[in-house]
């Protein structure tokens, strides 16, 4: 008998094992839901899968009586717009500031302690300030996301630039490169794939801040909807929404990973070594 650390599941068994926890949770839910509904057919806490499917179909196809919009898509569009705007702004700022502070000692000494202190501020604690300063519209939500994920991304990129072997920076100088050219042709291209990695790792936090901001002040959005219908114990809306948000986050994560492979073929092959 081989040691446990040397035993590996085959392809089929591996996939089955991966699905197993999902199936178990689903099974437990169905059983619990059935038990509660048997006691009280009007129970709202654990709706049956059929009820949730009905609710989801209604949310995804029927226009709302109040606004005339189809709720699920309108909420998704509003949330994704906020999330992607925040993430895109963070990516650009992180790349610009992170590579510059990583490469230029004067900038690093000037900005590093300040950015480290900034990163220590709990973003949710300044949410009221954002609402006061930028109003309760889209801007404050985007700013919250940026504030929440930018410090980590910036410091991550700065570290990646500092990790570029000194030999390469010297080599670039012996090829006649100026600071600007080295930033443009050595530091930025080599940290771009890291930027996508850092973004992937920040997505969870970005969703957190998005939903928090939407829960407090919004007129539509996935987080807004969940917190709105909470008042009516509307679990048949909340649970499909949570599943949908999870699916969106999962897809974005996979998309960024793929993008890294497509855009930077040297990155994957270099790391495999």
């Amino acid at each position: 008998m081989k040691r446990l650390i040397n035993q590996r599941p085959g392809r089929v068994l591996g996939s089955t094992l991966a699905l197993l926890p999902f199936a178990l949770v689903l099974l437990a839910y169905v059983a619990a839901s059935a038990a509660r509904l048997a006691d009280n057919p009007d129970d709202k806490l654990l709706p049956s899968l059929m009820t949730m499917a009905d609710a989801l179909v209604r949310l995804a196809t029927e226009p709302s009586r109040r606004t005339g919009e189809i709720l699920l898509w309108a909420d998704t569009a509003a949330s994704l717009a906020r999330l992607l705007t925040g993430v895109a702004i963070s990516m650009m700022l992180a790349l610009a500031v992170g590579t510059a502070t990583g490469l230029i000692p004067y900038l690093r000494r000037t900005l590093s302690p300040f950015l480290a202190a900034l990163a220590m501020i709990p973003p949710l604690a300044i949410l009221p300030i954002l609402f006061i300063a930028f109003g309760v519209g889209e801007l404050s939500k985007v700013v919250l996301i940026v504030f929440g994920i930018l410090p980590f991304m910036m410091r991550d990129l700065q570290q990646r630039v500092e990790e570029i072997p000194g030999e390469q920076i010297v080599k670039a100088q012996t090829l006649g490169g100026s600071t600007w050219q080295i930033l443009l042709r050595v530091a930025i291209p080599q940290t771009l794939p890291r930027l996508f990695d850092a973004t992937r790792l920040s997505l969870g936090a970005a969703w957190l801040f998005l939903i928090a901001a939407e829960a407090i002040a919004a007129e539509q959005g996935l987080g807004y909807r969940i917190f709105l219908v909470r008042r009516y114990l509307d679990m048949q809306t909340i649970l499909p929404y949570v599943a949908w948000i999870t699916l969106l986050a999962f897809t974005l994560n996979g998309l960024l990973r793929r993008l890294n492979y497509w855009l930077f073929p040297w990155y994957a092959t270099g790391r495999a070594k």
Partner: peptide
């Protein structure tokens, strides 16, 4: 001994970089 070439550029790109840095100061 190590790290003398740029991992994000092809062999041709690595050699070409010398010319690009010399002749395109702004966009390299």
């Amino acid at each position: 001994q190590r790290y003398s070439v740029f991992p994000h550029l092809t062999a041709l790109g690595n050699v070409l970089l010398a010319e690009e840095l010399a002749r395109a100061p702004l966009i390299a």
